[in-house]
Amino acid sequence: MFWDTIKKSLTVKTIKRLYYLLLLFFYFCYKIIESGWVVALLILKGSRGEHGGMLEYTTIVPKSWQLVILFNMLSMTPGSLSVDILEDGRVIQVHLLRIADKEQFLAVTTKIERLLIKAL
């Protein structure tokens, strides 16, 4: 009974999903360590937290629980802190520590989004 349900659900699609979920987990662990290190180095260099700014980012993730996970992950990537979700549920308001790092933030976020959609 128990093994039958496991055998039935063990298709190629599920294995692919599991693989992408594992990839997302390890990428997230790497990002946590990198973000702590980057901000600590920024303090040691004598930065005073100026040149920050707000940004509105439009997501493409379809489901609501993916939006919640993306919202929590954006706070842990280096240099970005998610502030609010605007009313239509597609736009996330993000505060960047240095507004000049916009391209790097966009690259990291699109990578996380693609991994989330594949790990659906």
Binding site: G36, A40, R48, G49, E50, G52, L81, H95
Partner: peptide, 23 residues
């Protein structure tokens, strides 16, 4: 030290969520 040195409220929040959890 970053909590005291940063001049902006949102920049201080960056320090609390990231650097402290790394430590």
């Amino acid at each position: 030290v970053g909590i005291v040195r940063f001049r902006n409220l949102y920049a201080r929040m960056h320090v609390v969520t990231k650097v402290s959890s790394f430590g």
